[in-house]
Simulated assay, not measured.
Amino acid sequence: MADPSLRQALEANEFILAPGVFDMISAKVADGMGFRALYATGFGVTASHLGVADAGIATYTDMVSRMGTIARGCRTPLIADADTGYGGLLNVRHTVAGYEAAGVTAIQLEDQEMPKKCGHTPGRRVIPAEEMALKIRVAVETRKSPDFLIIARTDARTSLGLEEAIRRGKIYAEAGADVIFIESPETEAEMAEVGKQIRKPLFANMVEGGRTPILPAETLHKYGYRIAIYPAVGFLTVAAALERAYAQLKKDGHSNNLPADASYGFGRMCELMGFPEVWEFDRKWAEIAGNLPPRKAAE
C-alpha cells in the first residue's frame, strides 16, 4: 500500500532527500536513519542482483521482485525505478499494477527507447513525447490509490537539448504525472531554467561523477525541486570499502589489521538483520517445547 506521507509532503511544499538503496543491507541501514523516502536505484539493483550494466537487461520480473522485497522490508516509503515500463502501454499497465501491489509508493517511468540505458551514460534515444504521454495516462488510470505517485522522466536533454526536454516535461505534467524528472541537465543555470518553466514538483538526480552538478538541498528547493535522489552514493561507497578491505585481507592473510572503523561489526549486523527477535522466539518456544510430555516410542 502506498504511503500517503510522500504526497502530503509534496502538497506541503516540503523537500524530500532520498538515498539510493540497492539491496536489503543498504535498505535496512538507510531505513533506520530517518529519511523521508528511499530510492531503489535501477543501476544499483541491476548490478547487485545480476552483476550487469543498467542497459535494459533486467526484466520486469527481475525488478518487481527486488523492489517488493525492499518495500516490504522497510518502514520508509520507497521510490522505485521502473525504466520504460518494460514495453508498450499494456506493459506499463502491468508494471504499475505490480509495483503498487508490491508496496512501492512512487514509480519512475522514462521516455527512452528500449533497451534503455543509465541516464548519465551516452547513447540514449527517446520515443516521441506523445507516445510517452500515453504511457503516463495509462499509469495514472491503472493505479488504485492516488497516493501512489507517478514520476515522469525525460532523457531528451542529452540528445535533443534542454528546450525539448522542458517541452516534454510540460507534456508529461499535462498527461497527469505527479512529479517531473528532467534527466541530466548539465549546469546549475539549466536546473534553474527547468524550475522556472515547469509548474510541477521536480525531481533531481544527484549522481557523483555524473552529468548534473550536485547542489545543496536548499538550492534545489529554491529552484522548484521537491525530491532529490542520491542513487549512487551507497553502492559507490560500498564498492570502495570492499576493495580496501579485500586488499588488506589479501596482503596480510588475515583480517586483524582492518581499521576499527572499517567494519560495521558483527553484533550490529545481527541486530540489523533481526537476530535478537529470532533468539527471543527460540528461547520462548524452547521453554514451551521442554515442558511437553516425552514422546512415546513407536509401537
Score class of each variant (00 low, 15 high):
T121I: 07
E163Y: 10
G195L: 09
T121S: 11
P185G: 12
D155F: 03
T105D: 06
V179S: 06
K196V: 12
Y172C: 07
M114C: 00
P115F: 03
R199I: 05
D111K: 04
Q197N: 15
A97L: 10
M114V: 09
I198N: 15
I198Y: 15
L134H: 12
E190Y: 13
L202A: 13
E131G: 06
G103D: 02
V92C: 10
H94N: 12
E190G: 11
Q112R: 07
G169F: 01
R125Q: 13
G87A: 10
I127D: 05
K196M: 13
Y172L: 10
L160V: 13
E186H: 11
D147N: 14
P201L: 09
G88T: 05
A173R: 11
S145P: 08
A139Q: 03
E174W: 11
R167L: 15
V96E: 11
D178I: 07
V140N: 01
P146F: 00
I182S: 14
E113N: 02
D178N: 15
I136S: 02
R124E: 11
A177C: 09
R199H: 15
A152G: 00
E130Y: 08
K135Y: 10
A106C: 04
K117I: 01
N91Q: 12
R153Y: 07
G161V: 02
R168M: 00
G88N: 15
V179H: 08
I127F: 01
P122V: 13
R124H: 10
A129V: 13
L89G: 00
E183N: 11
E163Q: 15
K170H: 06
A80N: 08
D81F: 07
I151G: 03
P128C: 01
I198T: 15
A189E: 15
R167C: 12
E164V: 14
I150R: 00
G161R: 04
G98Y: 06
E186A: 13
R199D: 13
N91A: 14
G176M: 04
I107K: 03
Y99K: 01
D178T: 04
K170C: 12
T142P: 00
T105L: 07
F181M: 14
G176I: 04
L149P: 02
E188P: 10
A101E: 14
A82D: 06
E183F: 11
E113H: 03
I182L: 15
M114T: 08
Q112H: 05
R168G: 00
V126I: 12
T154P: 02
M191R: 14
E186I: 09
R93Q: 14
R157H: 11
K117M: 03
A106S: 11
V179I: 15
E183G: 11
S184F: 14
G161M: 02
K135E: 06
F181E: 11
G123K: 09
C118N: 12
I151R: 03
D155P: 05
D81M: 07
A165D: 06
A106R: 04
V92H: 07
F181K: 09
T154G: 02
